[in-house]
Amino acid sequence: MIPTGIGHAPCHHGEILQGVFLDGDGRRCAGLVTLPMAGPGSHAAFVRRPGTAPGQLTVVPADRTKALRAAALAVAECAERTGQPLCGGELRLTGDIPVGLGMGSSTSDVIATVRAVAHSYGLRPAPDAVARLAVRAELACDPLMLDGRPVLFAQREGRVLEALGPALPPLVVVGCTLGRGAPVDTLSLPVREPCDADVRAFERLRALLRRAVATGDAGLLGEVATASAWRGQQTLDHPEFDTVTAIAGRVGAVGVQIAHSGSVAGVLFDPAAPGLRHRVRSCLRALDTHAIPTTRTFTTTTKELPHGPARRGGDRPSGPDTDRRPARLPAL
């Protein structure tokens, strides 16, 4: 009997920093640093069907086409490594990552799939191997295969440009959604070729973030995230952005962050700041006053701060990979 392979991958809460950077050879390269978030994730189960044609691969839900491509690529690689013939199989995906908010739902599906297929062959792929297959499956991917380690990641190439350290400075994040949670069609956004000044600005932010991680400086990280969010806002043009940044300033937050490919955003707090709970409650009230939906309050050290009824588990709303529908993140 062929065992069922299983795999899991987390999500993230948008980006702390995203832009164009220089790699070790001085070449310009798109890169990002994501804000990890414990909780929601994608789960994959894969059953091989020996003796069936390689093309006989199915996925449930049927619209997860990127995950299906990842399964085909992973089967081909695992079969070659183990000396077994190619075959078909069935992939099943479950999870609770909201789609359309820029939280890496499709990458999470893909990574969970690669891990599940490998597990069915008795293999455990290294993160760089998972990243390579993920980029082939969806053209660009988030660094979710690194399980929360802060890195500057070249999303279109699937490689780490810089390991920033073991962990981000502790943060408390009040999550919210902009643009009424509508998906962001990244293909329709205007494309502007970065100039030398842009690259220099991103490299300065990279250096500041490196220092923030090395020293555990939440305030400095907040400055970097806000500067990156402001730059992203020049393209995304969320109407509530100025309101969120103003609220962050009034309640003593260290900054804001946004998803550069979605509508999720976060108001960032230093957990060591005096009167933290009062600040967080004031932030929640202010966002509510301005009709900006809040989602989840969490920390980068995985402890969550309750501010509403919990809602967990189950399948996230199904939607084609090319047209992700908005969904609310479970509120805590």
Score class of each variant (00 low, 15 high):
P170G: 12
L171W: 09
L171T: 05
L171I: 03
V172R: 02
V173A: 11
V173T: 09
V174M: 03
G175S: 15
C176I: 01
T177D: 13
T177F: 03
G179R: 03
G179I: 04
R180N: 09
R180Y: 02
R180F: 02
R180L: 07
G181F: 14
A182I: 05
A182D: 08
P183Q: 12
T186A: 08
L187D: 09
S188A: 13
S188K: 10
L189V: 06
L189P: 13
R192E: 10
E193T: 14
P194D: 08
P194G: 05
C195L: 12
D198Q: 03
V199R: 14
R200G: 03
R200P: 00
A201W: 05
E203D: 12
R204H: 04
R206W: 02
R206M: 05
A207N: 02
A207V: 02
L209D: 04
R210V: 04
R211S: 07
R211G: 03
R211A: 15
R211V: 14
A212M: 07
V213T: 01
V213F: 02
A214V: 03
A214K: 08
T215D: 13
D217N: 14
D217P: 03
A218S: 13
L220Y: 08
L220A: 12
L221G: 04
G222D: 12
G222T: 10
E223R: 15
A225I: 10
A225W: 10
T226L: 15
T226Q: 15
T226K: 15
A229Q: 05
A229K: 01
W230G: 13
W230R: 12
R231C: 09
G232I: 01
Q234N: 11
Q234I: 00
Q234S: 05
Q234C: 06
Q234R: 14
Q234A: 12
Q234W: 01
T235S: 14
T235E: 13
L236E: 05
L236S: 08
L236Y: 05
H238V: 00
H238P: 15
P239M: 01
P239E: 05
D242W: 01
D242M: 08
T243M: 05
V244W: 03
T245N: 04
T245H: 00
A246I: 00
A246P: 02
I247Q: 00
I247S: 00
A248K: 11
A248P: 13
G249M: 09
V251F: 09
G252P: 01
A253V: 14
V254F: 02
V254C: 15
V254N: 06
G255M: 10
V256H: 06
V256A: 04
Q257Y: 00
Q257L: 06
H260F: 09
S261H: 12
S261P: 03
G262D: 12
V264H: 11
V264W: 01
V264E: 08
A265C: 11
G266W: 10
L268F: 10
